[in-house]
């Protein structure tokens, strides 16, 4: 199975299925670790509250599976946040893939941030063909700060990580499936990623 969307009861999955369908690809929904582990590409969606989403991941034993995946994995919105060490939302531990602690925006800005904001300092093949300062659609109250794994930034009261990458793991705070043509380009780029085993010489 080519593309698997992790189905753990959190997220606007239908929109992601349709976004890939527009790219000519049928995605498979699954919470089965065997199916997920055998996919060529994995999407880790997420909408809602962090601690209850982590609880659902644990119920499906996915909290241990996801960090061990070797194929390209794309976390979207809350999915990306859960790939970090911790989240202030519900004070929960995350999957520990990105060495960052997710924090809440302070009230100097309107929370949640809802709408189209710019992404810049793009530094990954995930953004191939996407212009600096392109607009992406965001809906969130919590953010991942800047760090070593940051591959794109957005400003909202402060600069934060709007996309992250470490080894085969990618995450976007924005919703590529809702970000018009630029979002579609990003999803296509993700599909171009191949599993590249790291050789120990």
């Amino acid at each position: 199975m080519k593309l698997v969307i992790i189905d753990y009861g959190a997220g606007n999955i239908q929109s992601i299925i349709f976004a890939f369908k527009r790219l000519g690809l049928e995605a498979v929904l699954s919470s089965d670790p065997t199916v997920i582990a055998s996919a060529e590409h994995v999407i880790f969606p997420g909408v809602g509250e962090a601690s209850s989403a982590m609880r659902k991941l644990r119920e499906h034993n996915l909290d241990r599976l996801i960090p061990d995946l070797k194929q390209p994995v794309l976390g979207i919105c809350l999915g990306m946040q859960l790939m970090c060490n911790r989240s202030e939302e519900g004070n929960t531990a995350g999957l520990g893939i990105f060495d960052l602690d997710v924090k809440r925006f302070d009230n100097s800005v309107k929370v949640p941030q809802i709408g189209w904001n710019q992404v810049y300092d793009l530094s990954s093949e995930l953004f191939e063909g996407i212009d600096e300062n392109e607009y992406m659609y965001l809906v969130h109250s919590f953010y991942a700060p800047l760090g070593a794994d940051t591959i794109a930034k957005t400003d909202y009261g402060l600069s934060y990580s709007t996309a992250l990458k470490k080894d085969n793991f990618y995450g976007t705070q924005f919703h590529p499936e809702k970000s018009s043509n630029a979002g579609a380009v990003l999803l296509q780029n993700f599909l171009e990623m191949k599993y590249q085993p790291i050789l120990n010489i």
Partner: peptide
Amino acid sequence: VAEKVNIP
């Protein structure tokens, strides 16, 4: 709508 439209 969700099938065709790529904005929220």
